[in-house]
């Protein structure tokens, strides 16, 4: 995949930092979760299942971008394999577990279970994002070389902005 020019991502600006790029991805995942919750609140189960799928795909893609590209790059540059990235991977596992439960709640059309799980997941995601946005991404911007190329490799993993593009299935990793 060539270097990107997705609308709304500010990637046309060559000075984009990893922090900005990844933070935008976090916000898109948040929006997707909010959209799914909105449909569940209105008990529009058809739309809810669709929105949940989009959210799930965005999360899976973001996890893959980090676990397959960003974290290895960080570990290689710093020599820290048991440090922050190990904890971030563990938190991804925590989120995957909740995502699986959310899928079954959506399947069973159990709105109170879904909203209980989504609230828990939202808090888990945000405290995880804070650590990444406050610490890990700024450290990457500081310590890693050739951020532009790195962002290119991250985008090559897949695009969570399939959320907005005409072909949503493209979003799945």
């Amino acid at each position: 995949m060539t270097l990107p020019s997705k609308p709304g991502l500010k990637r046309l600006d060559a000075m984009t930092t990893l922090l900005e790029f990844m933070t935008a991805a976090h916000r898109r995942c948040d929006e997707a979760l909010a959209a799914a919750e909105g449909e569940v609140c209105g008990k529009n189960w058809g739309a809810a299942a669709q929105k949940y799928q989009e959210f799930n795909a965005a999360m899976a893609c973001h996890f893959a971008q980090e676990e397959d590209v960003l974290f290895p790059a960080f570990e290689e540059a710093t020599g820290m394999t048991e440090g922050p990235t190990a904890v971030m991977r563990m938190e991804h596992e925590q989120m995957r577990s909740l995502l699986a439960q959310l899928a079954s709640a959506a399947g069973e059309q159990d709105s109170s279970r879904f909203l209980g799980l989504s609230e828990t997941l939202m808090i888990l995601i945000q405290q995880h994002n804070m650590k990444e946005e406050q610490m890990l991404y700024p450290m990457c911007d500081q310590r890693l070389e050739e951020i532009d190329a790195l962002i290119g490799r991250i985008e090559a993993v897949g695009s969570d902005s399939g959320l907005r593009s005409p072909k949503p299935e493209e979003g799945a990793p």
Binding site: M90, Q94, S97, S112, L115, E119, T120
Partner: peptide, 29 residues
Amino acid sequence: KIVPFLIFLHLQRRALGNPDAMSQIPTTN
């Protein structure tokens, strides 16, 4: 919000990797 989340966080970490225990974890709500 905070207290239920902390309780969830601690329980979930203890249960990770133990599928039987995962069903015991309450959501914050």
